[in-house]
Amino acid sequence: MSKAKRVQPQEIHAAPYPAGKVLDAQLHLLDRQVLDVDGVPVTTVDDIELSGPEPNEKIPKGAPAPQITALLTGPVLGTRIFGGRPPSSRLIRIPWKSVAGVDTVVTLGVRADSLDASWVERWLRTHVIARIPGGSHEPE
């Protein structure tokens, strides 16, 4: 890898500060816990889906900026760790329109059980936990 050309400090301008909340994806979104509307943990933010150009596609001047369309979870975590890209059919999407807030956690405006992201939880609940006596009682 060639050594990067330095951008000299005097070439760095003061940033225009957008109105509204600013989020840096790595710092404020990726790997954060996702809670549903009742505060039940659903998953973590493993990747983020954007609208806009396909990878490596030339961007015409004046093209509108991409938007966050969904938070992604599931097998995409494995590819983040080990590289590669999961087929898009294997991605579990949480649409951005169900997101209610972003703070130290990402909160959703919907219930966990209504999301694809919780299918393993629901499967284990009905097929394993519910079959063991006491599984659906409060601890005493």
Binding site: V40, P41, V42, T44, A112, V128, I129, A130, I132
Partner: peptide
Amino acid sequence: QFFGWSWGKFRRPAQAARFHV
């Protein structure tokens, strides 16, 4: 906590299925 599952003994086991399994 790594995978973001629901956990805790303050929940019923059915509400934290992956944790208990």
